[in-house]
């Protein structure tokens, strides 16, 4: 029973990682950049939702909606101001700019919301599920998190596979130049990708804070790094890969905490990542890139 409870906890944490990783992977797939500011967009989403609910006394769905809107706009603005001018620059230059954006968001949040942790009230009102005469309790947040991650993954897969914009995204990620020649607006496609990624980050932020209710300007950093790891784990650029990577990472983390060592759990998570990458250098579901001379 304990094992099952840990597995569910792991899946719940993993589902949050998966939602963040989905955003990461989409942005990476199309812009080929490691967007280190993604974790901080999560934090902004959490704060916006918190403010809407606590200060404006609005209901939870309004808070979530507002967080998604603010983060989507934020994502587009960041892309337009900071990343778009660097489209032709080296990947390292873009990486450092992303780090600059990350510092900016963290410090702006520090100025606006101060450093003291805010206690986040859960947005999920689903009653907990009791199984096996109450031996196994699955909280509402867990159910909501896992459900939303699955829904998001399916929606994204359909979106990128069937819709015109989604197909344009895949084309741009395949070959920017060729996509442009086919009449695809590369800039707006990249903007849409950033918008979707940031919107997902907002949802992830709200769910993360519902499960772990302390909110600080640095709340997003570690989940951001972990989700990035998850995206690489599953094969960066692949949507099912991000989902799988996120869930596995969450389960490994919780299991490591429960059965090996609480303190060394992070080390174990990263060690598993290294081993996976050594065996499959492009991640679990990543496509192998063949080098040409």
């Amino acid at each position: 029973m304990n094992l099952l409870a840990n597995l569910i906890n792991g899946l719940s944490l993993g589902a949050v990682y998966a939602i963040i990783a989905l955003g990461y992977t989409m942005v990476y797939g199309i812009a080929k950049m490691l967007n280190f500011a993604h974790g901080d967009v999560i934090m902004v989403g959490g704060y916006v939702c918190f403010c809407t609910m606590s200060y404006l006394h609005m209901p939870a769905p309004a808070g979530v909606l507002f967080a998604v809107i603010v983060c989507t706009v934020l994502g587009i603005v960041i892309e337009k101001l900071a990343y778009k001018p660097l489209r032709q620059a080296t990947s390292l230059a873009v990486l450092i700019t992303a780090i600059g954006v990350s510092y900016f968001l963290q410090n702006a949040a520090l100025l606006i919301w101060k450093s003291d942790p805010k206690v986040f009230t859960s947005v999920v009102n689903i009653p907990a599920i009791r199984l096996f005469d109450g031996q196994l309790v699955i909280s509402g947040v867990t159910v909501a998190t896992i459900a939303s991650s699955v829904i998001i993954m399916i929606a994204l897969t359909i979106f990128t596979g069937k819709t015109k914009v989604g197909k344009a995204m895949r084309a741009v990620s395949e070959d920017k130049g060729a996509a442009q020649l086919m009449g695809i607006n590369v800039n707006s496609t990249i903007s849409v990708t950033f918008a979707i990624g940031s919107g997902l980050a907002a949802i992830a932020g709200v769910l993360l804070c519902s499960a772990y209710p302390t909110l600080m300007p640095t709340t997003g950093s570690m989940p951001g790094i972990k989700a990035f790891t998850a995206a690489v784990f599953g094969g960066i650029g692949s949507i099912p890969g991000a989902m799988l990577g996120g869930l596995l990472l969450g389960v490994i983390e919780i299991f490591a905490k429960a059965y090996i060592s609480t303190q060394l759990s992070d080390a174990i998570v990263f060690a598993v990542l290294i081993i996976v990458l050594l065996i499959k250098p492009t991640g679990l579901l990543g496509k192998a890139i063949h080098e040409k001379v």
Binding site: Y28, L34, I225, F228, T229, V232, I236, S261, Q263, L264, D266, A267, F270, A271, L273, I274, L277, L278, P281, T282, G283
Partner: peptide
Amino acid sequence: LQGDYLAIVTLAFGEIIKNILNN
């Protein structure tokens, strides 16, 4: 490894070293 994969593994090793030193 190569490229971004190499970068993420160095990140992972950095975190592992920190985590071990913490213990």
